[in-house]
Design a protein around this nucleic acid. Structure first.
Lengths: 348, 348
DNA sequence: ACGCCCGACTAAAGCGCTTTAGCCGGATCA
DNA sequence: TGATCCGGCTAAAGCGCTTTAGTCGGGCGT
């Protein structure tokens, strides 16, 4: 059995002050690079800090100083479903990397639904646990931005529709990206294109559907979208539905990497070869789609980099610096791999 | 542009005390369920709390009370590689779920290597940022348990070798699990079994290798282990190496789900059918291996549940309750899917 | 030679909560 | 009846840091 006891108390600013022969105030000033301390004294103080191994007590700092040096991320998803798609982990890595460069911690919370998420925001704001938060998975008419603004909790949205709102957003233009993808398929001669989409209430899903259909209309494509809840099961079912469709598509676009993988499995079971019989493209790129056989054509986003950008934005925000209402992230690029090819001759 | 200003100040304990007509001390006692407050007064105080919407200021609480109500998780992996395997996200979900049930926050940090990780522990211990930490990816002769014990930072290891050390560990017996898997393959008639392993320095990889080889010796199997760094590329290369081996294995065991998926792709490219020509099993189960075609036989662990158990353990620990040196987690169970079958007749 | 200013530093208050001494009055006991 | 006890509550001292008022002494201007 093991139980724990903290060792002897840590040095405080008072200890350093004593060691350096100055007042605690002088130490605080020296540590925070404020004027009024001679170079000589400052050096002496820093030496004492190093010698005693002093570290700021974050709680004390937050109490006095008003900053918790912590940013929160609340994810409203069924907890057990988290973790299949690399997107989330990649984003968190990037976010975290940017934050920790500035010694700001990332606090993570997974909740069941948006209402629980709102509770958390209210609680965090009141408890002063975090200086700001990052919000994912924007929905149509999402109540969160407004609620956050009301609670006075600085926040940064990831995604959204690219229009200014009460809370700044980091926005990657997947509308434009979807157009690129549609043009790629059109160039290969595809006319009937299937689309395994996401939850219609999700803003980015809706935007993708709109982009695909608009572009389809422009280029003379027939688009069939089947919405799903992003689960593999529904993606598989959607794929079967598309195959059974009157005008069986010669290409299918999947909104996520996981969905695409599930779809490819269905195609394999149906005895269809990719891209010989049918082309497949994923809207999300990740290590997973490279695992498929053949590797999938996809729209590539550097999600890690997106996370860093989000981190940068939230840091600026909590420091009271002005932040654009919409921060543009690099748009996804088309990465052509082996899963898309010319439309099969047979059709015509 | 948006910039932020916090709204009017939050109520403090003093406000509640005034509202309820008692002293701040009485409020604190009532809030912390300490004796010496009459039921009537307590009710009045709680009413005031509700009315004013008071919330504890965590910083103040940590300053006085000595507890940060935060648990840390530091992961030493190249940040960009994080997120491919569901294991991590699942574990975090479970851990987080257990912690947040007790209003304890999870702080996440990704660092480049173990030495940076140690720095973080020292810093956190000094800053009192976290009450305890969770440690993953144990290596042989890992310096972390000892260092944590020295720093006086309560910690819980995930994995390890099942022997008591300076820090309590939550341990799932993958040794036993690997034996089950080997027996499954032996029962199907396989004799030459390939094994795509992990990093030899990793404790759990080493334990799996040992288990597999021991059982192989007992059952008369020939085991060929190829170590990898857990990456897909090396897993693919290892698979090719096994196929080129003098005694080509009739079954391959992969140490991770991602590796197995990469391997299956290689097999498909080589024109081998699974399980007709070769059987495949993954040591990690996850949504991914169910995506493969055919879905893979795997050792199933409820990683979410494991995370919850880790959370429970770390909570007990930071509360000063005694914790067993080794907490047993449910052992992985064999889930037979379509990817393992009888050894092909051709051989004989 | 006197008052001023300014740089360098200190004293002390305060952030919001917990906790350790008490204090006070009524019930209990001898 | 007086000493004791005890439940119910308050005063006040921290926790470690930041910040706002100074203080102090020497160089400067006149």
């Amino acid at each position: 059995m093991t139980s724990v006891e903290r060792p002897g108390r840590r040095p405080t600013i008072a200890d350093i002050a004593a060691q350096a022969g100055v007042s605690p105030t002088a130490v605080s000033f020296a540590l925070n690079d404020r004027p009024g301390i001679s170079e000589q004294t400052r050096t002496r103080i820093l030496a004492a800090v190093a010698e005693l191994g002093w570290r700021p007590n974050v709680a004390a700092r937050a109490l006095g100083g008003r900053r918790a040096d912590t940013v929160g991320l609340v994810v409203a998803r069924p907890a057990r479903t988290l973790g299949v798609e690399p997107f989330f982990a990649q984003l968190v890595s990037g976010l975290q990397a940017r934050l920790s460069a500035d010694r700001v911690a990332l606090q993570l919370l997974v909740v069941e639904d948006v209402s629980a998420e709102l509770d958390v925001y209210r609680r965090w704001a009141a408890e002063r646990r975090t200086d700001g938060v990052v919000v994912l998975d924007l929905k149509q008419d999402d109540p969160r931005p407004e609620e956050l603004a009301r609670a006075g909790l600085p926040a940064v949205l990831v995604g959204g529709d690219g229009t200014p709102g009460p809370v700044p957003a980091v926005f990657a233009d997947d509308h434009a990206a979807m157009i690129v993808l549609a043009e790629h398929l059109a160039a290969l001669g595809h006319v009937h294109v299937g689309h395994v989409g996401g939850i219609p209430a999700s803003i980015h899903s809706a935007r993708r559907v709109a982009a695909l259909h608009d572009t389809g209309a422009r280029l003379g494509l027939t688009i069939t979208t089947v919405p799903t809840d992003f689960s593999q099961d529904e993606a598989a079912a959607a794929t079967r539905a598309l195959l059974a469709h009157d005008e069986r598509p010669t290409a299918i676009v999947y909104d996520s990497d996981v969905a695409a993988l599930a779809g490819v499995t269905v195609l394999a079971e149906a005895g269809l070869s990719v891209p010989g019989d049918i082309s497949v493209a994923s809207f999300d790129d990740s290590a997973l789609v490279r695992l498929a056989h053949p590797p999938l054509t996809a729209m590539t986003t550097d999600t890690f980099e997106l996370g860093e950008l989000v981190g940068q934005t939230v840091l600026s925000l909590v420091r009271g610096q002005a932040v654009p209402d919409v921060v543009g992230a690099p748009p996804p690029r088309l990465t052509v791999r082996g899963s898309t090819g010319r439309v099969p001759e047979v059709v015509a």
